[in-house]
Design a protein around this nucleic acid. Structure first.
Length: 474
DNA sequence: ATGTCC
């Protein structure tokens, strides 16, 4: 498929509405970052998403967009619930509530340096990771799982793993409303029982980082960040439970009457009206899986805190926890009137600006942190939401792949990559050589360019740049 | 992303 993109303004490209598209496509990128320029077919998916029943404004793509299941990763699509708008599991992705959490330590990188190796050894020993395998917790059964699926990070805190202050710095206070554990199948529950408190694999990681540069001192101070400070970034999701929820509900929707009625260009866009039984069932199960992801990050936080206390002698404050694979019911103005929308963000981070409702109190004047993880050996960014964002308060979520995992394996040796990173002073604790090779920095876009494009497009503003000191790889 | 195929 040949797709024409027109540069509307710097860092903003339009795909004109045509054929069965209900809205145009909008791609935030530089010319160099456009999917076509990096050999990726994601824009075909941007066009397909523009055909979703009830979609409003545009089918959006962030600067890190790349090919995904049905919907592109780095895509944002909002549907009008009261106009028959749909929800689609493919618009959230298989790793429901995959997201990032940033913790700040009260120590500078120079002070940590002599302790880093020992710290990394302990973290490498205690952080569960890799495909399958166990987690920090072992749930007693379905009854306990349902508490966790309903109360999310709040359940971990109730059980003594964290503080109420942690919850104040989580999106939705760590507990997504509307969870319906009865819509989470037994197989999903069984897969999740032994994985609470684990990183998983793929691009998931736990990194020790240092603040390299502060761009916005006021916002950085509000977030609790300062130059040279040591931080911990945790990137993980809802493991096998979220994966199974997605698979189960894709199947339900694919077999529902809506699949035929909508006649969509790709079966992977399987969807149903938000207000329909399959739509409500998915959203209830998705919220439950989201709470699993949040509890997962909360438990990993406590494990890292214990390690920092014993190995370094300092505590860790939660800066923020935000998901980048979610569908949320939100109210936004469309065409001058407030509409209830189902906003799908798949590989796109919620980027709330100042003075918006549902901000946590201490962030109301600043806006919420937007956490953008880079790849191994490259920078990560903290940004903040901006009022001019017209992609329903969404921003990029990372660097974005340019090589498939298969391509990366052909190009990169895991051991060699480890040696290169170690020679640059970055301590690496991998779970498999293969997994490490698949996640090589060369397999990704340049995160600095992605963030510059996001800022240039007005999606979010840069607050601080972080650099890696050590990475525990999933 | 994922007990990388039910």
């Amino acid at each position: 498929m040949d797709i024409t993109v027109t540069e509307e303004s710097p860092f903003r490209f339009r795909i004109d509405q045509q054929g069965r598209m209900s809205v145009p496509g909008v791609v935030f990128a530089s010319r160099e970052l456009l999917p076509q320029a990096v050999g990726d077919r994601a824009l075909e998916q941007v066009v397909n998403v523009a055909m979703l029943p009830g979609i409003v404004r545009a089918s959006f793509a962030m600067p890190d967009v790349h090919w995904g299941y049905g919907f592109p990763i780095g895509g944002v699509a909002a549907t009008d619930i009261d106009a028959g708008g749909v929800v689609s599991p493919g618009g959230v992705g298989f790793d429901i509530s995959c997201g990032v959490r940033l913790l700040a330590a009260d120590i500078e990188r120079a002070e940590l340096a002599p302790l880093l190796r020992r710290l990394m050894d302990v973290l490498g020993d205690i952080i569960p990771r890799g495909a399958g395998r166990g987690g920090l917790w072992r749930l007693s059964g379905r009854a306990e799982m349902e508490k966790l699926l309903t109360r999310g990070a709040g359940y971990a805190v109730e059980r003594g793993h964290g503080t109420p202050r942690d919850l104040a710095r989580c999106e939705d206070r760590g507990i997504l409303a509307g969870a319906d554990p009865s819509q989470v199948g037994q197989r999903a529950v069984d897969r999740g029982l032994l994985q609470v408190g684990s990183l998983g694999s793929g691009n998931h990681f736990l990194e020790i980082q240092a603040v390299d540069r502060v761009y916005d001192p006021r916002a950085a101070a509000a977030f609790g960040l300062r130059a040279a400070q040591v931080c911990v970034m945790i990137h993980c999701g809802s493991r096998g439970l979220g994966h199974q929820v997605c698979a189960d509900h894709v199947r339900i929707m694919d077999r529902s009457p809506y699949a035929r009625a909508f006649d969509l260009p790709d079966r992977q866009l399987a969807c149903a009206p938000v207000a329909s039984p399959p739509g409500r069932a998915y959203l209830g199960a998705m919220a439950a899986a989201a709470n699993y992801g949040r509890a997962n990050r909360q438990l990993l936080t406590e494990a890292v805190r214990r390690t920092f206390t014993s190995a370094v002698g300092v505590g860790l404050d939660l800066v923020y926890d935000v998901s980048h694979n979610m569908a949320k019911i939100e109210t936004h103005e469309v065409g001058g009137t407030p509409r209830r929308l189902c906003v799908h963000r798949k590989g796109a981070t919620l980027a709330l600006p100042a003075d918006r409702p549902c901000l946590s109190e201490d962030l109301a004047e600043t806006g919420h942190p937007v956490l953008v993880p880079g790849t191994m050996g490259t920078a990560s960014y903290v940004m903040v939401g901006t009022p001019e964002n017209d992609a329903f308060a969404s921003a990029c979520h990372g660097a974005g792949r340019v090589w498939s995992r298969h391509q990366a394996l052909r190009q990169v040796r895991g051991q060699q990559l480890r040696d290169e990173l170690e020679s640059r002073g970055i301590a690496v604790r991998p779970s498999s050589w293969r997994g490490l090779a698949e996640e090589a920095p060369a397999a990704y876009k340049n995160v600095d360019a992605v963030v510059a494009a996001a800022e240039g497009a007005g999606l979010a503003r840069v607050v601080a740049r972080l650099v890696p000191l050590g990475v525990v790889k999933g």
